[in-house]
């Protein structure tokens, strides 16, 4: 009988992607309006091409149908100067079987426990911190099985006055197709200011933005003389139901005010040229940019999602990550 069949919980194996996508698209596009099915190209970029590897735990029936999935993106991070892995949880699934019509209750929980045991914790190749965003209207989704708890509210910085900023004559903006060693240099200069955050070097930025299928991003580097002095990445999108220019990456060292002004002007110009009326960015409240962007005229508004997470580190409680973990709109823009 179908209900007695054996369910296998195991990590992803080569060739599972078709079954994963079939289940994912069935769960996320049926009945939903305007949600395009995920393509194999997108899936491969997200999971297979991630330079930090893949974290997928599946619950499969005997016929190979994916009934549940607990998945995350391992991402290199620095916590108090130490190189670690963080994990962005996403794409959780627990669906009705196409063949039997039954939903295996508790299967997502079982996958999540296997996921945590296999990948979470301290030590080589394990992640010390899991994080995700969840909507305000449905805050409990996927939380309990992965042990994720409320970290903090998410806020955006919104600029509705898109008059020209003027930039700064000392900095030159160059739009780029790919990130090179100058990105590593800028990242290392900004990393010292952040107690916990992702490693935003060229390897990460190229995967995250320039190789991303379907969504075109525009990236720019500010140079002061020959010195790379700041990075911003932009795309036209929608935020909280309104069309907006989105600042999906912002990395400017503290001592490069000219680069910050010039990049801000570039973002405003890009947004205006795209026919959009607002520019949106996201920073944690303890980030330096939280105040700097308000000084540039941005207003703080609560976003429609919260950050949730779980610490697997001995030293750092999740309240440490709640306060210190650097987030931006780039951490939300995966699907």
């Amino acid at each position: 009988m179908a209900l007695r069949e054996t369910i296998t919980i195991r990590p992803y194996q080569t060739g599972d992607e078709a079954a994963i996508l079939e289940t994912y698209n069935r769960a996320n596009t049926i009945g939903a309006t305007g949600v395009a099915p995920r393509t194999l190209e997108h899936w491969r970029w997200l999971f297979e091409n991630n330079p930090s590897g893949m974290r997928v735990m599946l619950g499969l029936d005997e016929g190979g149908e994916v009934l549940a999935q607990c998945a995350g993106l391992p991402l290199r991070a620095r916590v108090d100067g130490k190189s670690v892995l963080a994990c962005l949880a996403l794409d959780g699934l627990n669906v009705r079987s196409e063949r039997t019509g039954h939903t295996r209750r508790g299967l997502f929980t079982a996958c999540s426990e296997a996921f945590r045991e296999t990948f979470g914790g301290e030590g080589r190749e394990r992640h010390v911190f899991t994080f995700a965003s969840t909507t305000i209207s449905n805050p409990q989704v996927g939380r309990a099985p992965l042990g994720l708890a409320f970290l903090r509210e998410s806020f955006v910085h919104v600029l509705d006055d898109l008059t020209a900023r003027g930039g700064d004559f000392r900095a030159e903006i160059r739009e780029i197709e790919r990130f090179g060693s100058e990105a590593n240099e800028i990242f290392e200069r900004t990393a010292t200011e952040t107690r916990a955050g992702l490693v935003r070097d060229a390897l990460f930025l190229n995967w995250r933005f320039t190789e991303r299928p379907l969504k075109p991003y525009r990236a720019a580097i500010a140079f002061v003389g020959a010195r790379p002095a700041g990075i911003a990445v932009w795309r036209a999108g929608v935020h909280d139901g309104r069309a907006a220019g989105l600042v999906v990456e912002w990395m400017v060292p503290r001592d490069e005010p000219a680069a910050a002004s010039a990049l801000c002007n570039w973002l405003v110009t890009r947004t205006r040229d795209a026919g959009l009326a607002r520019l949106v960015a996201e920073f944690g409240a303890f980030a330096r940019e939280w105040n700097e962007f308000q000084a540039r005229g941005f207003k703080v508004a609560r976003a429609q999602q919260h950050w949730i997470g779980a610490s697997h580190a001995r030293v750092h409680h999740q309240r440490f990550f709640a306060r210190q973990f650097r987030t931006g709109l780039g951490e939300l823009d995966w699907s």
């Binding site: 509210e153 806020f155 409240a285 303890f286 308000q294 207003k299 703080v300 609560r302």
Partner: peptide, 19 residues
Amino acid sequence: PTWSAWFEWFQTRGFTAHA
């Protein structure tokens, strides 16, 4: 409270938000 419309109202009158 950040859900309240007063959160925006005070900002439009020169207040800024701080951690």
